Amino acid sequence: MRILIVHNLLWAHYKASVFQALQNLVDQRNDLSVQVLQIARNERSRAGLETTTDGAPPTYTYNYELLFDRNLEEISFRERARLLLQRARAYKPDVINLTGYYDPAQLLLLLWAKVNGIRVIMQNESTAVDQQRGGLKERIKRWVFSQCDGFFCFGSQAADYVIQLGVSPTKILLRKNAVDNNALRSVYEQTVPFRNQQQQALGLRPNNFVFVGRLIEVKNLPQLLASFTEASKQSKNGADWGVLLLGDGAEQANLTQQIRTLGVAEQVHLLSGRPWFRVPEVLALSNVLVLPSRSEPWGLVVNEAMACGLPVIVSDRCGCAVDLVHNGQNGFVFDPDHPAQLTHRLIQFMDGAIDAKQMGEAAKQFIAPYAPEIVAQEMLDGFIKITN
Rank of each mutant, 00 (worst) to 15 (best):
M1P: 06
L4G: 05
H7Y: 08
H13D: 12
H13R: 13
S17N: 10
S17M: 04
N24A: 13
L25W: 04
V36K: 00
I39P: 01
N42R: 11
R46S: 14
P57V: 08
T61Q: 14
D69H: 11
E74D: 15
K92T: 07
N97I: 03
L107P: 02
L111I: 13
N116T: 07
R119E: 12
R119M: 05
V129G: 08
D130R: 10
Q132L: 14
Q132Y: 10
Q132T: 13
K137H: 12
R139C: 08
R139P: 00
K141P: 01
K141H: 06
S146R: 15
D149W: 04
A158W: 03
I172V: 09
V179R: 02
A183W: 00
A183E: 04
Y188H: 01
N196A: 15
A201V: 06
R205H: 05
V210R: 03
F211N: 05
L215A: 08
A226N: 12
S227D: 09
A231G: 06
L244F: 09
L246D: 00
L255G: 13
T256D: 11
E266Q: 15
L271G: 10
P275E: 11
P280Q: 12
L285T: 12
L285H: 06
R294G: 08
W298G: 05
L300A: 10
E304R: 02
G309A: 09
I313A: 07
I313N: 03
S315P: 00
G319D: 03
V325Q: 00
G328R: 04
Q329L: 12
N330R: 06
F332Q: 12
L346K: 12
M350Y: 00
I354D: 04
Q358V: 05
M359H: 13
G360Y: 02
V375L: 13
A376Y: 02
E378P: 01
K385S: 08
